[in-house]
């Protein structure tokens, strides 16, 4: 059987909110090392990769590898019934066709069980090679969210450029153009307000703002976001999940034909 007890249940709620509009159905791959998920959006240009390590759970048991086929909208409906401070336990039998979500209030005076039907999903797994990216930028996640939202009101695509000075976001549309530059900034009080640029070579790539906007639904998971870019490769937008792992989004660049 599989069982995972997560003291900070709100993390799971936040993960679902971040991915449920991008991916419809996906397998949660459970093994003794944790829970992993990889899924593409329906147009196959964006990919979600989630890792929740067993060590981040208060209690974790997985007797044999399980692929739990889950409709994310339905799981989100169930998790919305959990309080933000609740402890969430996931349970599934080896041969079962359901998953149980147990919610415990912080002072243990309310225990709820929700059982959700599982589904059979043929997943398309992509092999993502380890890459030395040409540029890696870490910046405040709220700032990235703000920039992407602001640019979305002006254009459909953004050019993201990285030089050793910083990262720039540009767009254009019927009403005009916009260009935002965030400079490397390591002299701020709080580490989470820093913008750091690690660069081997300047890089500039074009992406659909609609997807970048969707990725920023993960902002609540982490105060910082890391953007990894290489010429003619998908961008990686990574939110680290404290003590547990990460939520990564990959987005294919727009390339001139």
């Amino acid at each position: 059987m599989f069982e995972g007890r997560l003291l900070q249940g709100s993390l799971l709620k936040k993960v679902l909110e971040a991915i449920k509009d991008l991916v419809t159905d996906t397998n949660f791959d459970c093994s003794e090392t944790g829970i992993a998920l990889q899924a593409m959006d329906s147009s196959h240009v964006a990919l979600v990769s989630l890792l929740l390590k067993d060590t981040g759970f208060d209690h974790f048991r997985c007797d044999r590898n399980l692929a739990l086929g889950i409709n994310l909208q339905n799981m989100s409906k169930m998790l919305k019934c959990a309080g933000n401070d609740d402890i969430i336990t996931l349970k599934a039998e080896d041969e079962g066709d359901t998953i149980t979500f147990m919610f415990e209030s912080p002072n243990q005076d309310k225990i709820s069980d929700f059982e959700m039907k599982l589904m059979d999903i043929d997943s398309e797994h992509l092999g993502i090679p380890d890459t030395d990216y040409q540029a890696i930028v870490t910046m405040p996640s709220a700032e990235f969210q703000r920039i992407v939202r602001d640019l979305s009101s002006i254009g459909d695509t953004a050019v993201i450029g990285v030089t050793k000075e910083g990262i720039s976001f540009s767009t254009g549309g019927d009403i005009g153009k916009a260009n935002i530059v965030c400079r490397q900034n390591t002299n701020v009080d709080k580490e989470e307000d820093q913008t750091t640029v690690e660069i081997h070579e300047p890089v500039s790539l074009t992406f659909a703002l609609r997807y970048l906007n969707s990725f920023t639904k993960a902002t609540a998971l982490s105060p910082q976001v890391t953007l990894s870019l290489s010429k003619e490769l998908p961008i990686v937008v990574e939110y680290k999940i404290e003590k547990m792992g990460f939520l990564r989004f990959y987005l294919a660049p727009k390339i001139e034909e």
Partner: peptide, 14 residues
């Protein structure tokens, strides 16, 4: 025109 390429172009399907 710029085209949105699919991920298959960059990563191989397992």
């Amino acid at each position: 025109p710029a085209r949105q390429n699919r991920l298959f172009k960059f990563f191989c399907l397992h």
